[in-house]
Design a protein around this nucleic acid. Structure first.
Ligand code: FES
Ligand code: FES
Lengths: 150, 150
DNA sequence: CTTATTTAAGACTTCTTTGTCTGAAATTAC
DNA sequence: GTAATTTCAGACAAAGAAGTCTTAAATAAG
């Protein structure tokens, strides 16, 4: 798979938070139920994003998580780097070391192009901007699309 | 990672075979040493390609494996499908079910483009054609590039 | 202060991928 | 035939990813 499951869950949860107006906290229970993601697993992923400063958390009743201003202006690329690391954007398609530094493998020129396209796709908009777009276009964040950008 | 390790090993071994003139058999020991891939692991991968008709094998002294005519005219795409399955070319970037059938996720339009670019990269040449190209351009198939297309 | 709610932290289990090992079957050379 | 070489088949082990569970810490409400 292109992205790990942790990463996909992290992106979807971040987009969920971006879709919510105001800056209230949303509980992990709510998010995990809405997006149908294992509660404890999601907890660990969002803890990572909190550590990286994309998400702010608050404990106690009515607590939860929300995007920091950093998070609102982050791109999906930033989140992928935070969760999966930079490998996807630097590594050789054939797994050889030193892509771009040593002699190219047979796929190099083409893979650099495709890889760049993926990078652009993830870099082109901030979470806030994607959320705006989502309100117009009714993008799907869940299997059955029961989630709405309101 | 884009492709599994099994898949990458399978592609590299197939390109190795394509680089060899004539239709002699090459032993798995030779291939695994040249390409620095675990012998037993490579064995299993090539057994799969044999079962799928891309590779022919012969037992006994001076035995080994070689590309079938199907294999020589196969593309890397064919081999990826055989080893990793079609998931990379059909699945949603956010892991949602029914990509292309249900409402699109926020990445869909862009992912379809990038995915197509990857597909084209893998489909554009047969193993034989890549081997020809490799002889001109000295592509790398190993970490240090000690392999030569001769 | 007590209780309920919520995130934080980390141990633990399960599943998949990756890699290793052993023995059987086919083939060749002597 | 016997021994050596090679693929075939499948059990097994190690490592990583994915998912579960328990306890602790912070906060709010009564
Ligand atoms: S060397 Fe293989 S993709 Fe760059
Ligand atoms: S629905 Fe997500 S990429 Fe197609």
């Amino acid at each position: 798979m292109l992205l790990s499951k942790s990463c996909v869950y992290g992106l979807r949860a971040s987009l969920y938070l971006a879709s919510k107006r105001g800056n209230e906290y949303h509980s992990l229970k709510e998010i995990s139920e809405e997006l149908e993601i294992s509660f404890h697993f999601l907890t660990k992923i969002l803890q990572q994003l909190t550590a990286d400063g994309y998400v702010e958390s608050y404990k106690g009743p009515n607590g939860g998580v929300r995007l920091s201003s950093n998070g609102q202006n982050a791109t999906l690329f930033d989140l992928v780097i935070a969760i999966d690391g930079p490998g996807l954007f630097t590594q050789c398609a054939l797994g050889l070391p030193g892509c771009g530094l040593q002699e190219p493998c047979p796929l190099h020129d083409h893979w650099v192009g495709a890889r760049g396209k993926i990078e652009n796709m993830l870099k082109r908009m901030t979470l806030n901007e994607i959320a705006e777009e989502g309100k117009e276009k009714h993008f799907r964040l869940t299997a059955e699309g029961e989630f709405s950008w309101q």
